[in-house]
Design a protein around this nucleic acid. Structure first.
Lengths: 139, 139
DNA sequence: TTCGTATATACCTTAACAGGCATATACGTG
DNA sequence: CACGTATATGCCTGTTAAGGTATATACGAA
């Protein structure tokens, strides 16, 4: 669990962080708002705390958790080169998309997301019978 | 492996993406530059491709991979609220740090909010009876 | 065709997490 | 002191993903 990215890979943790943007929250509030078992919340908070995403203050038996920006800033910083990349290429991309608005081969390519999903869903367990023209460098 | 964050959790994948910022690269180039076994590279590229982070074109037996911005843009978008958060609090933080440059031990009054809280229910002294071993709400 | 290069997949093993459940610890109050 | 509330940990389990190794596929050249 080294990097900030690994921490953010967990959806519930991202949800917790988002919840903390407007204001600090107690464990119980998070538990209720996200409808998540209390031990889970505590565990995620521990991970977040140890990674520096949040910090807590004590209020009687309660712990009030609030955001700490540093790790997210790191992520933001990592993103910077890519941001420059896509900003530089926006126009080129637009042109490209404009151009291929027709039907290249099969039914007009879906959104990248959908395409990805489909690819994932496709069972690529070769049935052990026929070569099926699949292995090897994709064409 | 749903979200972009999960994809980015893997350091080698991040490395690959960074490598692709300046220009597209073949699998072999990535392999050499990152000193990573070829199957590993191919596997990571597959994940990246299916998640829409990259796309490839065929050049004879070679595949040239290049960046696609969408998923990273998503990440960037998710980050936005937090960016606002830390930008809004930078000055406050600075003030805070400026102020507490003195005695860290003495009750140096913190923010008004905290002061108020404390006034309400100042009773958070650890009884010292038991050595605060480990279990239980952290103090 | 055969060979060499470039890349993708299959399969196996291992490790790491997330979830669930039980329970320990702290604190305030009666 | 006993109790209820708030939160943290321990342990166990299932799942999933990454690494390693072997091999299949595709293509150009001889």
């Amino acid at each position: 669990m080294e990097s900030a990215f690994e921490i953010l890979a967990e959806p519930n943790r991202r949800a917790i962080l988002s919840l903390l943007v407007p204001a600090e929250q107690s464990v119980g509030e998070i538990e209720r708002r996200l409808r998540m078992p209390q031990p889970a919340v505590s565990k995620h908070l521990r991970v977040l705390r140890e990674a520096g995403f949040v910090e807590a203050t004590v209020d009687a038996q309660r712990r009030l958790y609030r955001l700490k920006p540093e790790p997210l800033k790191e992520v933001d910083a990592w993103l910077a080169p890519f941001r420059r990349f896509w900003e530089a290429h926006i126009d080129a991309l637009e042109r490209h998309l404009d151009r291929m608005g027709e039907s290249p081969k099969s039914p007009a390519p879906k959104s990248p997301a959908q395409a990805a999903k489909k690819a994932r869903k496709t069972k690529r367990r070769r049935p052990r019978g026929k070569p099926l023209t699949r292995r090897g460098p994709r064409t």
